[in-house]
């Protein structure tokens, strides 16, 4: 067990509801060990606030091992914090300086309204998937798994794209609040696989339309999305989505 103890000056976004005004509130959090994750540090803050009779800070989290995509905070200006290929829940406090001031804000985008404090509504991402991010396959009608051989490289590329966890950091990091990386990851995964081909045209057209309807911005190649993506989903999937899109529109 570590004997080292750290303290931090936090500036945390507090907002009581979607319609209420929000503001940054200063807190001092003490007795933090370097092994703690960023969210465990916030748990500790909440324990300290509760003991003082104050309202704890609300934030989303679930698996705490970087796979469910539920957590997501903007930490001093960077979605999921300073470490690359990391979710907020797997970021450890040893990556911060003792006594440092840390700003904690929600993932911001017009399509992600704040529900309370650091909790945002990301159901817009579900609606993009509803627009076509699937293979129309009813249970019970599938051919044998080995009936469709898939080149190993295609399977690996599809897996790279499929590793998206739907956290929305790409949107939060983008100056345009674009959901291109998220949408392209699904389009690209299914474009690499023969199972995805029959619906490819309809899929990309419909998902891109939904993305616009939800109020996400356009992609102007800043590449911020790729830089913050905890699963290192590459922007080459955006290029593939554009190709698929033009094929669908012109073909």
């Amino acid at each position: 067990m570590s004997t080292q103890s750290m303290s931090f000056n936090l500036r945390v976004w507090r907002q009581e509801g979607p319609q209420e005004p929000g503001r940054l509130v200063d807190y001092k959090v003490v007795d933090i060990s370097p092994e703690m994750s960023f969210l465990e540090m916030l748990d500790e803050l909440n324990v300290q606030l509760t003991r003082k009779g104050e309202r704890p800070v609300e934030f989303d989290s679930d698996c705490r091992e970087g796979i469910c995509g539920m957590c997501g905070l903007v930490i001093t200006g960077v979605a999921h914090g300073p470490l690359s290929a990391t979710t907020t829940c797997t970021l450890r406090m040893r990556h911060f300086q003792d006594g440092q001031t840390i700003e904690v804000e929600p993932f911001r985008a017009a399509a992600f309204p704040v529900l309370r404090d650091l909790v945002v509504d990301r159901t817009a991402l579900d609606r993009i998937i509803q627009a076509g991010g699937f293979v129309s396959q009813n249970a019970g009608s599938a051919p044998d798994g080995n009936a469709i051989p898939i080149p190993k490289d295609d399977a690996e590329n599809a897996m790279d794209a499929a590793s998206c966890i739907g956290c929305g950091a790409c949107v939060a990091a983008c100056p345009n609040a674009s959901a291109f990386l998220f949408t392209s990851a699904k389009v690209s995964q299914l474009a690499y696989l023969p199972q995805g081909r029959p619906e490819a045209r309809r899929r990309v057209a419909s998902m891109v339309r939904q993305m616009d309807l939800e109020g996400f911005g356009n992609c102007t190649n800043h590449g911020e999305c790729e830089a913050v993506c905890p699963k290192e989903v590459s922007i080459h999937h955006i290029a593939r989505m554009r190709k698929e899109y033009w094929k669908a529109m012109l073909g």
Binding site: Q137, P149, K152, Q189
Partner: peptide, 16 residues
């Protein structure tokens, strides 16, 4: 079979 048909990218051998 169902998961493969859905597009789950299971690990593959070089032969596919």
């Amino acid at each position: 079979d169902q998961c493969v048909a859905q597009g789950v990218p299971f690990a593959r051998e070089y032969g596919g």
